[in-house]
Amino acid sequence: MKNLGFTLWFTGLSGAGKTTISQGVALELKARGSRVEILDGDVVRTHLSQGLGFSKQDRDTNVCRIGFVASLLSRNQVVAIVAAISPFRDSRAQVRQMNDNFIEVYVKASLEACEQRDVKGLYALARAGKIPEFTGIDSPYEEPLNPEIVCNTQQENITESINKVIKYLETREYIRATSVSSEKPSLTA
């Protein structure tokens, strides 16, 4: 059994389910006694990356800052869970290099599905030209080429996606396998 922290990096379009799945995984890991910290992209941008815009350079800077904090946490036996769009492969590769135990989780959903789920109305604002450089609309999202885990939220419910991540962590001995609880977190996408 590894006695190390690790970084779980959830990437995907806005509305794909990154935050919801990461929160469910965090609840399960905490219930098993792990020390866990969630670094949500929206929250981090408000506090750690305030003042950055949405150019490629600013997005890369934001992702690298989050990656640096995750590496500090994980090397101190904390599970760093990151939920951030992180749209560019090269910045995700940089973050992977910063973190010894890095697990990329691609939360996959089509642009159409994400737009339908958009409770904040961000896609509509982007399509109306009110949010420039919005990922998926007028700024690209580069899908991961070889993520360790893919959670397809159009085919899996939240509990299935959470269980997929937990099973991966058990199989790779990041966490101890335990009997499956009949009560799983009740979360919606």
Rank of each mutant, 00 (worst) to 15 (best):
R127Q: 09
D40G: 02
E28N: 06
V165E: 05
G121M: 06
A83G: 04
Q23H: 14
R59N: 07
R92P: 01
R92L: 00
I38D: 09
D90N: 08
T153R: 06
G136V: 09
S161M: 13
A84Y: 08
T7Q: 06
I131G: 00
R92Q: 01
K130A: 01
T7M: 08
G51F: 03
V95T: 02
A126R: 01
G136A: 12
L27E: 14
S14L: 07
L125N: 10
D42P: 14
E148K: 03
T153P: 14
S91E: 11
F102K: 00
P87T: 00
V79Q: 08
A128R: 09
R45H: 10
I81W: 13
Q77K: 10
S139Y: 12
M98H: 15
E143R: 12
R176M: 04
V107S: 02
V82D: 06
V82Y: 05
V79Y: 09
T11N: 02
A70H: 00
V78C: 00
N101T: 11
T178Q: 12
V43E: 08
V69L: 11
V43Q: 15
R117G: 04
G136K: 10
W9M: 04
V180F: 08
I162F: 11
M98W: 15
E173N: 04
Q77C: 05
V63H: 12
T61W: 07
F68S: 05
T171V: 00
Q116V: 08
V180M: 15
F88G: 02
S49A: 06
G67A: 09
R117C: 02
A31M: 10
F68V: 00
L111A: 00
L187M: 13
R32Q: 00
E160G: 12
Y123R: 07
F68T: 10
K184I: 04
F68C: 03
K167W: 13
G51M: 05
T11I: 01
N3K: 08
G67V: 03
F88S: 01
A93K: 14
T19E: 08
L125E: 13
L48E: 05
S139H: 09
S179A: 12
I85C: 03
E112R: 07
E170F: 03
D40P: 01
E104C: 06
I103M: 14
T178P: 04
E133Q: 04
S91V: 12
M1D: 05
Y123W: 03
V79W: 10
C114D: 01
Q50V: 14
K18I: 05
S110T: 12
T153S: 10
N76T: 15
D138Y: 08
G15L: 15
D42H: 06
Q97Y: 04
A26F: 14
D90A: 10
V63E: 14
D118P: 00
N101P: 09
L72M: 07
S74P: 15
V43Y: 13
N62M: 03
Y106R: 03
R89S: 15
Q57G: 08
P144M: 06
R35E: 11
S74V: 03
Q155T: 13
T153F: 13
K184R: 14
V165P: 04
T188L: 01
S74D: 08
C114A: 00
L27K: 03
N146I: 02
N152C: 08
K18W: 10
C114F: 02
G121F: 15
E148F: 02
V44C: 15
A16E: 09
I131T: 00
